[in-house]
């Protein structure tokens, strides 16, 4: 065999290896991409809703704050406003969104965002004394952590 043919053969083999490598890479990329898209399609569908739901939670926060200031008011208007609040909660509940209880629980950064450390006053250290903004779950997912004060 001619030496030039050998080199040509080697060159082609090398080229084939590179091309094959690129082919496999593209194939792998695509396969991984496809799998991830499948996995994430649920998440993506939710992410569209997420933004609007998060801003609705701010409206709910408004109700929570308003109620704190008017606990003893039992007028018909007050009852009506409470009914509106319940209705909004029910709308979200139908989508699988619900507030979770934080007060008295051990502080957990997966669920809580600490905004202050306060005197224990009878609460065990490291537990949530109050939530200044409620936390919400969406199914298994923490949609928004609660904003809490923690005994320390």
């Amino acid at each position: 065999m001619m030496p030039t043919e050998t080199t040509e053969l080697e060159r082609l083999q090398e080229q084939l290896r590179t091309e094959h490598e690129m082919y496999l890479r593209a194939l792998a990329d695509f396969d991984n991409y496809r799998r991830r898209v499948e996995r994430e399609s649920k998440y993506t569908a939710r992410s569209g809703k997420r933004e609007i739901i998060l801003s609705l939670l701010e409206v709910l926060d408004g109700f929570d704050r308003a109620f704190q200031h008017a606990e003893k008011n039992q007028s018909a208007l007050w009852e009506g406003v409470q009914a509106i609040h319940r209705k909004l909660l029910a709308v979200l509940q139908a989508q699988g969104i619900a507030p979770f209880e934080s007060v008295g629980q051990a502080f957990d950064p997966a669920l809580h965002e600490a905004i202050a450390a306060v005197e224990p006053n009878g609460h065990p250290s490291g537990t949530v004394v109050d939530d200044v903004q409620r936390g919400y779950r969406w199914g298994d997912e923490v949609l928004r952590p609660a904003r809490v004060r923690v005994a320390q």
Partner: peptide, 13 residues
């Protein structure tokens, strides 16, 4: 040991 968002949430404490 917490890293990222979780670490930030407990920073005040």
């Amino acid at each position: 040991r917490l890293v990222g968002q979780l670490a930030k949430r407990q920073a005040v404490l």
